[in-house]
Design a protein around this nucleic acid. Structure first.
Lengths: 340, 340
DNA sequence: CTCGCTAATGTAACTAGTTACAGAGGTTGC
DNA sequence: GCAACCTCTGTAACTAGTTACATTAGCGAG
């Protein structure tokens, strides 16, 4: 008549299984890790016990022995921009081929938050780190140095950095875009970009622009890193006494926003004004008109970073920097303008 | 003349620190966890030793005692859609307030991959799971049952599900959009949606549509879950002998693609055809024309899921389902059509 | 001067696995 | 018939922390 006693809530561990199966802990461990060496009926006994007790091995206990947690962390400014989403997708896919999971943390482009999040990634046991850009807080540099955590810098290429950088030349990418507009005969060019605070990629792109002779003719607009931000900037530009004949956006999200903003103001692209972006998001190819942009190889960057980090972790050997090529993708949003 | 001996590569552990500082392991542990109870100069001795040896406590060893790993996993179809990115951003932000990190894994809308990824999340020690939709493979259900892992279903509301669902009524959201078009006097309506395979949210939206009297008049187009997919569908629709007077897209990504596709074909929205989406992505508000859509409260969904999961983990008490309201956001892409 | 109390620290047993080594039992070789 | 060897399993010591309990030191009161 007595009901089965309510099983103790506690999760079964390896010793419980061993007892239930009438074998030693070593045997259970073997069933888990090298079932080949265990005699068939012992194997079955143990597996039955595992199933009956709903035994699930503890990740922590396993990690304490192997010294491995099997995951790495990535710090990105935001998920709310397809460029990072695409990068992370490739990163995650490739890491997973190396039997590593990915923990994502967002920094909101704030170096203090970045350092905090990095700390908590280390606290939960990340075996490596992927960070965005080369500028970071002292706290983060200190953390990386103290823990000697394999860490790769992405979205940035710099041979001088003590940490390996895997990315593209931001200054060069911006120059590619500007040079294209210059080649098309544009003279009055407005530049629209996202916040420069705590963002060395944007700063690098701007400084690339300044290195070109055209630089003095440039008017720049800083706005939000969003479609809305781009649309707002477009409205500002339309209110100018003398409209530019081309707009260069330092990211495609902003470029699409600018395109919408111009359309809303009745300004035709590329008829009235040419538009060029940077990133090459999928939406840029589909927009009307399709947006001319500089393709950044973020998928490749995700793949290369994953491989480099996985190797670094596996072989304790720091990889070198890798430069990935940005290239201009000509579409229909920028056309030749006759000078004079 | 002898150089300092190359320090042993091995990471210092708590016992090494104790030895170096001339105290016991318990004291070092106290310095780490309750520095208040340690005498000041002991504290300093230990902290010096920690700094000198670059000691970083092992997450695994800590986890083995506390039974806590401080992170949960989320399984989403893709990062490459702003709707999930926004959800995850809110989820991550809120989890982080509860001292939990987030491990993201993408499933590519494949239930087999989903189950594999879930397995590896459990293997690395996730304390809880966030999954998308209610349809899952037997392997995943089995895993959740065996591990008794706190697991929350999102993007879906269903009081019957044994797991707590935190989400919206997909059928109702689709009906909201369709009813709006009906109310505006539209009669020939095309529906464009992403793949239904392994995607119960899209299936639920379609079945919601079928429950409305208008259903028999609907033509549906299945396409890729992307801007490009939407543009392709638009081209198909334009090639129809009789064009619809409204297009209903079951997601905003596709809706924007359709808008681009129609523009490219010279079809005016809303002049020639009305357009309605579902999701309410930021781009929909900025597009020209701004797209009428059904707002899905994904940010709130991320926050609520995080809180519910954190509580579940902390108090071992399964939360109930939560229904979040979808609501129509009228913008300019759908206008009244005179009947007859 | 010793008792009693508190504050600070130490000892050793835990957590849940892995693994080196030992040992039992059976088979084969000479 | 016994050594040698192989297969399989068990014992116990590891991993790196936390923590219950024991111990010591220091100080004031009686």
């Amino acid at each position: 008549m007595t009901q089965k006693a309510p099983e103790p809530k506690k999760r079964a561990n390896l010793r419980d299984v061993a007892k239930a199966a009438g074998v030693s802990v070593a045997t259970v461990s073997r069933v888990l890790n090298e079932p080949g060496v265990v005699k068939k009926d012992t194997l079955e006994k143990v597996q039955t016990a595992i199933a009956r007790l709903k035994f699930v091995p503890s990740a922590a206990a396993r990690a304490i022995n192997s010294g491995r947690t099997r995951f790495v962390g990535a710090l990105v400014p935001t998920l709310d921009n397809a460029i990072f989403a695409r990068f992370l997708a490739a990163l995650e896919r490739t890491l997973s081929q190396h039997d590593l999971s990915l923990v994502v943390a967002t920094t909101d482009s704030d170096l203090e938050i970045e350092a905090e999040k990095a700390k908590s990634l280390v606290d939960i046991g990340a075996e490596g780190l992927i960070i965005t850009g080369a500028a970071h807080s002292a706290a983060l540099h200190d953390l990386i140095e103290r823990t000697m955590l394999p860490t790769i810098i992405t979205s940035f290429y710099d041979t001088e950095n003590p940490l390996p950088t895997i990315g593209y030349d931001n200054a060069g990418a911006a120059q590619l875009a500007l040079q294209h507009l210059i080649d098309l005969g544009h003279q009055r060019i407005s530049v629209v970009h996202g916040p420069t605070h705590d963002n060395d990629r944007t700063r690098a792109r701007l400084s690339g622009l300044r290195a070109l002779p055209m630089a003095s003719e440039l008017t720049t607009f800083e706005t939000d890193f969003s479609h809305q931000g781009g649309a707002d900037a477009a409205r500002q530009i339309c209110a100018l006494p003398q409209k530019p004949d081309a707009i260069l956006c330092l990211s495609d999200v902003v470029a699409l926003g600018v395109l919408f903003g111009l359309q809303a103001e009745g300004v035709s692209v590329p008829g009235d004004v040419s538009l060029v972006g940077i990133d090459d998001l999928p939406s840029s190819a589909v927009a009307v008109p399709p947006i001319t942009t500089v393709h950044l190889p973020v998928t490749q960057m995700g793949e290369r970073s994953a491989v480099a980090l996985a190797d670094w972790i596996a072989e304790q050997k720091k990889p070198g920097p890798e430069r990935l090529e940005a290239r201009l993708v000509e579409r229909q949003s920028a056309i030749r303008r006759n000078t004079g």
